[in-house]
Design a protein around this nucleic acid. Structure first.
Lengths: 337, 337
DNA sequence: ATCCCAATTGTTAGCGCTCACAATTATTTC
DNA sequence: GAAATAATTGTGAGCGCTAACAATTGGGAT
């Protein structure tokens, strides 16, 4: 047990003295260099254990010019998606021996982003992961001087940055195809804000699939991702519902829709089918259980970190990884009446 | 614009040369020391701007033995509560000029916690915030050698550690009192796991308030926080419902309950009243909109950071801060039939 | 002018580590 | 057994910064 009167933490030198070797040999041991004899290695390891030695990261960072730290810049960190992406990033980072430092922003404005990036880079990071799902993020970043690898989550890096994303277009097509297969012809879409990359690409996927099927894509409504906006749109839709099926941009808005329909006496799925997006843990317990498109955020985060490690180690060009979403059919969809 | 051929980043020395002062004077300027003349300060600031100088954090950390970094150890980081607590911590940290490094754990076992703490402390942190809502966390931490301040979120530090928590007992009492005021006499509780501090203290608050009112506290059911467990318990309850009102440990389980009741034809609030806990953003859009107890997680995180800063700067004893929850009445509660 | 004190600026050392290289020892080969 | 090679260990310098102290400067009071 370490006495609390110890002047200070042991250093490399202290271990070296104890093991009767040079500090450099100790350094070799803790860095797993080859060319250290079995006997010395054991001697050093014993000394390390006895002294309870731990390497001083600051000193190491100073000389190596690396920090083994990845910065994560996140907007909407309190949301299910970003929070779980962060979780995945963190897991993969720790496995690879990296630390994760975070900075959250409230508004995704250029100034806020620039400030946050400055705050992050002040730590001397080895890489930055950007989880900001708004359009224009690539342009904003391109305007900044960044001397470390950057991986953008959920947006195409446009050749400038690496990226990790879920195939939103595919997800939307999965949802719409399911509805078409069921026999629906009038399929509306409640989108997220069009200035969010995901909002836009889901809407495009919906439109694209409808066009392929020769169906009209005129039933488009724009929400703000919140259950409240879904509820408002649901009330309008309940009053005059031209669609027999609705593909909704996320599960929260779908929840709002469900409640608006319930209040108005519109039955789901008998009168109208509803498909969500995300598959949050609660979605299977909505009334009725929601058919939705699952995104694996943790996997997204892990992949993201993989791309990052590639960029750090090989200094290769922009890499991209795409996670495929899957359709989860529950009870909010059925054939039209 | 910085040329990409620059050999390396400018240092204090480079700025000093440019401004014709000593490196120490530059150091004084960037650290806002008094006793620097207005003229020199401006000269130095100009040089800093021209060179695009940024302080090297590793070098500074090495000499000051401080990192200006707070570590956050979190279980269940993907959940609404922890994610938003982290958000609050991050905001307050950034304001105070601190960085936030995170480590997530999957299981709150002693080994996992000990590993995670080791991982965190390897960075040489100035403090650790622990967001692990399981019983026994205090004992687990007490068994580790920690040479930096620790603040525990959501659990009493037991005199050993500082803490920041929401008054769970009060929250439970608010919920039960509301039900009693409505005229209910048979009030059940669907608790979270009893090995979670919050689960236990909400259950205790419920029991305490019932006892005060001279009511029976025999209707206690234990879930696991998930909507699924709420659903299962709801099905049992629907079959033979001795209670006219239910206080549920969190909103997710309440959602499951709501659906089970809906399926079984039990009407809420006509046949049974339901109160949740947390007030997640979606809870107002459940069917029916959920009466619940709101916890301000961001505020919790901010307070937590405040306690941490106090501990770092004053090296004072264990501080504690308590956030008060509020009751949000919606439409899932009514007078008994 | 002369001294003194405060305000400002400069000098030196060292935080704990890794890198590049030098020195030593063990192992092979003839 | 000596020379050549490979494996292992040691030495010195310096990463960029701040703390402590030393040196300088510029006003008042004498």
């Amino acid at each position: 047990m370490a006495s609390s009167t110890d002047r200070r933490l042991p250093r490399l030198e202290d271990v070296a003295d104890r093991a009767n070797v040079s500090h450099q040999t100790v350094s070799r041991v803790i860095n797993n260099h080859p060319n250290v004899s079995r006997a010395t290695k054991e001697k050093v390891e014993a000394a390390i254990a006895e002294l309870g030695y731990r390497r001083n990261t600051a000193a190491r960072n100073l000389v190596t010019r690396r920090t083994q730290t990845i910065g994560v810049l996140a907007a909407e960190l309190g949301q299910y998606g970003p929070a779980n992406t962060l979780l995945g990033v963190q897991q993969a980072a720790r496995e690879a021996g990296y630390f994760v430092s975070i900075t959250a922003i409230k508004e995704a404005g250029a100034d806020a982003i620039s400030d946050a990036i400055r705050h992050l880079t002040d730590q001397g990071l080895d890489g930055i992961i950007v989880v900001v799902p708004h359009n224009g993020i690539v342009e904003t970043l391109a305007g900044l001087t960044l001397d470390v690898p950057v991986v953008i989550v959920g947006a195409d890096g446009g050749g400038l940055f690496s990226s990790a994303m879920v195939d939103q277009g595919l997800g939307a097509r999965l949802a719409v195809s399911h509805l078409i297969d069921l026999g629906h012809r009038r399929i509306g879409h409640v989108s997220g804000p069009r200035d969010w990359t995901d909002g836009r690409s889901r809407a495009e996927g919906w439109g694209g699939r409808l066009r392929e099927a020769g169906l009209s894509e005129d039933l488009l409504f724009e929400g703000d991702w919140s259950a409240g906006s879904g509820y408002e749109i649901g009330r309008q839709l309940a009053a005059e519902c031209a669609a027999t099926a609705l593909f909704v941009g996320n599960d929260q808005m779908a929840l709002g829709l469900l409640r608006a329909f319930d209040e108005a006496g519109v039955r789901v799925p008998e009168d109208v089918s509803v498909v969500g997006f995300d598959d949050q843990p609660e979605s299977g317990y909505f009334i009725p259980p929601l058919t939705t498109v699952r995104q694996d955020f943790e996997e997204l985060g892990r992949r993201c970190m993989k791309v990052m490690l590639g960029a750090i180690e090989d200094d290769a060009g922009a890499g991209t990884t795409v996670v495929e979403p899957v359709l989860v059919v529950r009870r909010s969809t059925a054939a039209p009446a």
